[in-house]
């Protein structure tokens, strides 16, 4: 499952699915996608502020499948509590990338510079390779990955995106006053 720059086109949808934190829930969600022939682009699962709930962030490629049917089928799963579709233009998205890149003494400096430009981090340096990390908007990670490719990527791992709705202006102001719950 490779994440390519096509994700920046608006032909994908982000579903933020709040589920009961019980064993087998992820299998149910994944099984539903497989069984109904829907394609998952990326998937991230993690606990939320409420112990009883987890949030699954799913990026779906909906060129072939109507999103409405996916959402309705997902909602039929008993453990699914809430589904929000996040409009990429109205949400904040983040992802983490780890990459080990071929870098001998000669081009190590260039890779480090690249990481610095992107505000990434150097995690480990070896004789002929270097491991970097970058977190940020998935589009930024796409660009970084593309540039790293020139040096030779030994291993690369991305987390898949997580997202939350953007606060509107009023909510932002309230957030500043610390009133958002």
């Amino acid at each position: 499952m490779s994440v390519t720059s096509t994700t920046s086109q608006p032909n994908y949808h982000i579903l933020s699915v709040l589920v009961q934190n019980r064993s087998g829930v992820l299998a149910r969600v994944a099984g539903l996608f497989a069984r109904r022939g829907y394609n998952i682009f990326s998937l991230a699962v993690a606990p939320t502020e409420d112990d009883a709930l987890s949030r699954i962030t799913i990026v779906v490629d909906v060129e072939s499948t109507p999103l409405e049917q996916i959402v309705k089928q997902l909602f039929k799963l008993i453990e699914v509590v809430k589904i929000s579709e996040l409009d990429p233009r109205r949400s904040v998205e983040r992802e983490l990338l780890l990459a080990t890149v071929r870098a001998t003494c000669d081009d190590r400096g260039q890779v480090v510079e690249l990481a610095n430009i992107f505000e990434g981090k150097i995690l480990a340096v070896g004789a002929d390779a270097i491991t970097v990390s970058l977190d940020g908007h998935p589009d930024k990670l796409d660009d970084f990955e593309e540039l790293l490719r020139g040096y030779g990527i030994v291993e690369l791992q991305r987390t898949g995106r997580v997202a939350l709705p953007k606060l509107d202006r009023e909510a932002r102001l309230r957030a500043v006053k610390g009133k958002v719950v």
């Binding site: 087998g24 299998a27 099984g31």
Partner: peptide, 14 residues
């Protein structure tokens, strides 16, 4: 059992 019957039940639980 729960894995096998997941897609043929409305709900199941171990």
């Amino acid at each position: 059992t729960v894995g096998i019957t997941r897609s043929v039940t409305k709900h199941n639980e171990l």
